[in-house]
């Protein structure tokens, strides 16, 4: 019984939150990695693109709710997501045509592109706050839990509860679907292969007759999709605040770098490495020991490696460690 309680405790406080946050990070990191591998720059505006996607979802949610279209018990955000994705893609492509394209044609250094993306970040951030305001927006509706802690306790008779929020379930399921679609596209379709070829060897891709503008267009379509879904899921899970997305850029970059920049599989692994490390390092192990060890061995104190205040800082610490030990990341990415 104690053993099962311990397992439940770990699932409830580490496994499920880790999977959820990890999926969100992984989707974000995929966006960054794909822009990097095709366009060869670190896109600091990606966090704001995510925010833009989330904002589009919220606005559409309001519209749909006012029209009394909903999907109870699922949140309305699910129905509006496809439309929000289209809006986000449109914005990404617009930004590319007006801004990034110029520097691509100039063959600018990646660092110039990076600074340009900061300009885009400022502009987009301002635009978002201008449209929707800086405040907190909760746009979750529908059933809150798939599995309530109390139900679980009653059902199993364990003293530890296990809860699964609807947002967590949606996040994990949607992420899996999206990642499968992405990998199918990249590995099985001609266009996807041509994208990989372009990112691998631009000159040869041009010699083979691959149209660079088309590759760039598809890159932004994928990036916009990923950004919108990741942003919406994050906002749905933790409530939307424009401000938080600026701070999300760094954990996402950490995830991308930890996994190996330019490598999609790496981005996903990186996302989970970051999310689980955050939880594992800040988890108070006292209760676990309580279940797994005889009572007289359970030590005093919370047994946290780092206090919860440092949760987000952990992603930066991992980033620094990875840069120190293995700058190419877990999966050998392209060294920036």
């Amino acid at each position: 019984m104690d053993f099962l309680n311990g397992i439940t405790l770990i699932s409830n406080y580490i496994l499920i939150p880790g999977l959820t946050y990890g999926s969100q990070l992984a989707l974000g990191a995929l966006g960054i990695t794909i822009v990097y591998s095709v366009l060869r720059f670190s896109n600091f505006a990606h966090g704001e693109f995510m925010s833009f996607g989330a904002m589009s979802s919220i606005l559409l949610c309001w519209l749909f709710l006012s029209l009394e279209i909903n999907l109870n018990p699922l949140p309305t955000a699910i129905i509006v997501l496809p439309f929000a994705i289209i809006i986000t893609i449109f914005y990404c492509i617009l930004v590319d045509k007006i801004i990034f394209k110029f520097y691509r044609q100039q063959n600018s250094k990646s660092v110039i592109n990076l600074i340009v993306s900061i300009g885009v970040m400022f502009f987009t951030g301002g635009l978002i706050r201008f449209i929707i305001g800086p405040g907190d927006k909760n746009f979750f509706d529908g059933e809150r839990f798939i599995l309530k802690a109390k139900t679980f306790k009653n059902y199993t008779g364990l003293s530890e509860g296990l809860a699964l929020k609807t947002t967590q379930g949606i996040t994990i399921v949607l992420s899996i679907i999206l990642v499968i679609l992405l990998f199918w596209f990249l590995n099985k379709t001609k266009t996807g292969k041509s994208m990989r070829a372009y990112s691998d060897n631009k000159e040869l891709a041009l010699l083979s007759g691959i149209n660079p503008e088309k590759v760039v267009l598809i890159t932004w379509i994928i990036t916009g999709t990923l950004a919108c879904v990741a942003g919406t899921l994050y906002g749905l899970d933790k409530s939307y605040k424009p401000f938080t997305y600026l701070h999300l850029v760094l954990p996402i970059f950490s995830a991308a770098i930890v996994g190996g920049v330019g490598n999609p599989v790496g981005a996903i692994i990186g996302g989970f490495v970051i999310s689980f490390s955050e939880l594992i390092v800040t988890f108070a192990y006292k209760k676990i020991f309580f279940y797994f060890l005889p009572n007289y061995l359970v030590p005093d104190g919370l047994l946290q490696i780092l206090s919860t205040d440092y949760k987000i800082a952990i992603s930066f610490i991992i980033l620094v460690l990875v840069l120190l030990i293995r700058p190419t990341g877990i999966y050998k990415g392209k060294i920036i």
Binding site: K190, K193, S194, R196, A197, D200, N201, E203, L204, A205, L207, S208, G209, I210
Partner: peptide, 24 residues
């Protein structure tokens, strides 16, 4: 045309490399 250097796509499989040749 086969350039002197960088004439393959290293992270694509052999078959994908060939497919890319026939892209047009």
């Amino acid at each position: 045309f086969v350039p002197q250097t960088n004439n393959i796509f290293p992270s694509l499989t052999v078959e994908e490399n060939l497919e890319m040749g026939a892209f047009v």
